[in-house]
Nucleic acid binder design. Structure first.
Lengths: 204, 204
DNA sequence: ACCTGAACACCGTTCAAGT
DNA sequence: ACCTGAACACCGTTCAAGT
């Protein structure tokens, strides 16, 4: 039989991961399903809506399945419990989920901005650290993940840049940008959490 | 006589501010200059480069002209001094500059990610608060500004959403989202700066 | 309910050629 | 140096029509 909405979203994620957001066109998603472009509009009103559904799929495991990342596909052995109880683990899991699919951070961040204050992840974080802490952590996490993925993409294209032409201080980061960015994320997270602690123990 | 690179960048900014990033095509920029699309490729190798130059123009006043925003165009009465000496003022000025042009945050954040660790703004902030603090503040500022502008755009299109259908807790934010987002940005900034202070006074 | 086929109004980029 | 004209391989979306 024919395709369901879930099939369309899954095909979208496959194209996104394989080709990147730039090349994730309605026409390519349709081709992935072996169907005419116009057929997609039976399942989804426009591209933006499809991307929002894809974002939900990317983030789903984090909001529902606990701190450990589970792959965007099946989520076979899901813990029935809620998300991680600790904001650090939550943000790291969120980051991992976004980084697991190509340009995932862009897709998730854009969708989240459309529902500012009303997303599941923001609600969960608000329960853990209050509304200001939640938004700060979330936007930092999005910003860092987007930056990481854009930088990855730039590095993938421009293996062209000659490391010898760079200032000495950037040498380590150029040598292993992936490890550097992971560590940089965790240090920033620590700074924000320290700020939240200080706010809690002082007069607010 | 004919157009210069500066003319192309200026035309790009005019189209961006008037039509948004989505509609800021090479063909429209060319039309703004009264020229064929192919003529742009004499000044610029591709669209990405043009957007990066536009990003520099948007952020320029902040990196060079002090804390006060000055409009992306002329910057007639520039203070000769460096940027704001205080990280709070610097981030607020950066945010203001990005918000001053439609989709400015998207354009600046993308360009910044391509030069991660090598942008002028990151260098300046690093001098004020060290590399971890700089990246944290920067990515938070980008994330919040992007979120603000995306949310604006959504609100502009969907005056459709019925406020009565929303949970009560969001009522104030819906009533005046602009003021709410400004205040939210400053509270998040305070949290991060408090975290940096705590790191400095404690053992690091 | 789900899809095809054809169309409309667009894209970024290249390239030979003009002045 | 700066631009035109024409072309290539694409876009998102709509709409009548099929099954």
């Amino acid at each position: 039989m024919r395709n369901s909405l879930a099939d369309v979203v899954a095909a979208g994620l496959r194209v996104l991961d394989a080709q990147g957001l730039e090349n994730c066109s309605m026409r390519r998603v349709a081709a992935e399903l072996g169907v005419q472009p116009s057929a997609l509009y039976h399942h989804v009103p426009d591209k933006q809506t499809l991307l929002a559904l894809m974002a939900d799929e990317i983030v789903g495991p984090v909001a529902l399945g606990g701190g450990a990342a589970q792959g965007a596909e099946g989520a076979a052995g899901a813990q029935a419990a809620g998300p991680a109880a600790d904001p650090r683990a939550f943000c790291m899991a969120l980051r991992e989920a976004m980084l697991a699919v190509r340009d995932g951070a862009d897709v998730v961040a854009t969708a989240a901005a459309f529902r500012l204050g009303a997303s599941d992840v923001e609600r969960w974080l608000t329960a853990l650290v209050g509304p200001d802490g939640a938004r700060t952590l979330l936007l930092y996490t999005f910003g860092h993940a987007q930056s990481t993925q854009t930088h990855r993409q730039a590095a993938a294209l421009g293996a062209l840049i000659d490391p010898a032409a760079l200032p000495r201080r950037d040498a380590a980061a150029v040598a292993d940008p992936e490890r550097d960015l992971d560590a940089s994320f965790e240090r920033g997270l620590a700074i924000i959490l320290r700020g939240l602690d200080a706010s809690a123990t002082s007069g607010r």
